[in-house]
């Protein structure tokens, strides 16, 4: 097979799928002012993975994913409890919970000697996109992310109408008999699922970035929600592909014989797209006046 198909296409597709899986719930997080939930979720994945590994001794992706999901669910619950019982701004509650969980993960990692052998913190932060090559077959992350992205898209399609209502006007939605609390919990679960799936493949930076940047950029440029979601998916895929290419080839164009972090570059590109969207939007607003 062609070198591109073996080395570059699989990670590029995986990055795109991860971006799509995150951007879908990201649209609703941004609308309901819970954007930082993505930050919290991507940090609490670490202790889940470590505990799952310690309990089962298995490095299997599905086992670790289940552990991560459990940790994400637990911390979502803790954030709710802390917000209510301490009557605290949600941001502060998130900061308390995710730092505690992350610290626990690091301590477990260091104390059990797991670090360096199977897991390490930096790996978890940057991801290992570049190693997901087609050798000998497709990397398992490919199928897993494709499945999860498709599942999230389907779920979103199913609950679209009540979710839009509940996001826009929760009180009205409640009076219409829409289970607002369940939808909120569902969005949290979808965020956790996307964060866990993406995290294993691409690391936590890319997860935070894809949960927020494409949706925020699309929100600035569109006035209708279906359009916003569509544009955000476009931004997500575009930044994944463009970021991957830039990370792999830009140093070569500069005459440097190595590559830079693809996850970091994708996050940077999506941030630059948001900046572009913000400038375009304010330019348009000025033109209207």
């Amino acid at each position: 097979m062609d070198e591109f198909l073996i080395l570059s296409l699989p990670p590029m597709v995986i990055a795109s799928l991860a971006a799509v899986a995150c951007a879908l719930p990201g649209n609703f997080l941004v609308l309901s002012r819970r954007a930082m939930l993505g930050d919290a979720m991507s940090h609490v994945v670490l202790p889940g993975i470590v505990v799952a590994f310690l309990l089962t001794g298995s490095g299997n992706g599905w086992v670790m994913g289940a552990g991560a999901l459990a940790a994400a669910g637990l911390s979502a619950l803790l954030i709710e409890v802390v917000t209510r019982r301490a009557r605290m701004e949600p941001g502060a509650a998130m900061a308390v919970v995710f730092t505690a969980m992350f610290a626990l993960g690091v301590v477990l990692l260091e104390m059990t000697g797991t670090s360096g052998i199977h897991l390490d913190v930096e790996h978890a932060l940057y991801g290992n996109l570049e190693t997901l090559i087609w050798l000998p077959g497709p990397p398992p992350e490919l199928a897993r992310l494709a499945l999860i992205a498709a599942g999230l898209a389907l779920a979103l399609r199913l609950v679209w109408r009540p979710l839009v209502l509940a996001t826009f006007d929760p009180v009205f939605a409640q009076t219409m008999g829409i289970p607002v609390a369940w939808l909120r919990a569902g969005l949290t679960a979808a965020t956790a699922l996307a964060a866990v799936a993406a995290f294993q493949a691409v690391g936590s930076i890319l997860t935070i970035s894809m949960l927020i940047c494409p949706a925020a950029a699309a929100r600035l440029l569109t006035t209708r929600l279906p359009m916003q979601v569509a544009v955000s998916l476009g931004f997500a895929v575009a930044s994944a592909v463009l970021g991957y290419v830039l990370a792999g080839y830009a140093p070569l164009w500069l005459g440097l014989p190595y590559t830079v972090s693809a996850s970091g570059m994708i996050a940077t590109v999506s941030g630059l797209m948001l900046v572009g969207a913000a400038l375009t939007a304010s330019h348009r607003a000025r033109a209207r006046l």
Binding site: V30, R33, R34, A35, M36, G38, D39, G91, L125, Y126, I205, L206, I208, S209, L211, I212, C213, A215, A216, R219, L220, A247, V260, S261, S263, G264, M265, I266, A267, T268, S270, G271, L272, L274, A278, A281, S282
Partner: peptide
């Protein structure tokens, strides 16, 4: 000025961090 503050915070966090890793 254009986005909710939490979205702005998260976007800046991820972008600068990503650039740092690069």
């Amino acid at each position: 000025r254009q986005l909710a503050e939490d979205a702005a915070t998260g976007a800046v966090l991820a972008t600068f961090y990503g650039a740092g890793i690069v």
